[in-house]
Design a binder for these strands. Structure first.
Lengths: 140, 140
DNA sequence: TATAATCCCGACCGAATAGGTTGGGTATTG
DNA sequence: CAATACCCAACCTATTCGGTCGGGATTATA
């Protein structure tokens, strides 16, 4: 199992899309600028996201990307899987005769369940609540 | 966060040590043979385990390694940390201004807690129960 | 119709690191 | 002294991560 900036970038970008995708497609350059991610690299990631059916694209000027499903129906696990990060802690291909096989299996299940139940919508809301709270504090 | 064979090897070897360490030290060649791990590589891992105070060594003929503490007081998390695998999913050094920072933080906590509460003794027992059950089945 | 914006795609690259090896030590037992 | 074992630094190879490059194809707009 590995969790690198790749999955993080993907989730961040998808979240950005969920937040700014109200009307019309959002272009990658915008996301890249807002989130400070290399545009070319982001493009590579979106290639995968599109192929997995998580986003759809509009080409040409004023084009960009949109979520294919509503944010409540896209899990973080899916996004990470799309950019090809394995969420498998065992990695011993079936029966490795291992003393510890069950342990890694259990751990993998834990992580997987956690990420499968988190949706983009949830993260979006959490963020908005946070922002609201901060504004309130700053007014006071 | 990454979880590779390194941590797996370390935990497996420590478990082996917990199971066979009843009387006197156990030498690496034995463990390597039993668990099918490269002896030289295992040695490298044990260097770290020793430096972290998880095992102590006896040099010379009939030498080997022993657990420094009893198996119930060594957590899987410690073993993995000893061989230098980071259990951090965030890896964004403090405030990365990230939309998703909280998510990774939460995930890291989950994983960490899981591995911190698993001790070698527990895994040992689980294994022994398993073996007993299998024997029973085979007798029938 | 030209041009700019945008997605699309394969190929490449440097650095890090995982897993592993080699070749030398040093200590202890018999 | 020889065999067994720990100790250690340096090296090797393959993978992959984050990222770039150079070129398409498609669409909106001036």
């Amino acid at each position: 199992m590995r969790l690198t900036t790749r999955g993080r970038y993907a989730v961040t970008a998808m979240l950005d899309l969920a937040m700014h995708g109200g009307e019309g497609p959002v272009c990658l350059n915008e996301i890249a600028r807002r989130r400070d991610i290399s545009p070319a690299y982001l493009e590579r990631l979106f290639r995968n996201l599109r192929r997995r059916g998580l986003v759809c694209s509009t080409r040409g000027a004023h084009g960009g990307y949109q979520l294919c499903r509503c944010a409540g129906e896209i899990s973080v696990a899916e996004v990470i899987a799309a950019v090809d990060e394995s969420l498998d802690a065992t990695a011993c291909d079936g029966d490795c005769g291992g003393l510890t096989h069950d342990l890694w299996e259990e751990l993998t299940q834990h992580v997987r369940r956690f990420l499968e139940t988190k949706t983009l919508a949830e993260l979006c809301e959490a963020r908005q609540r946070e922002d609201a709270a901060r504004e309130l504090r700053e007014e006071a």
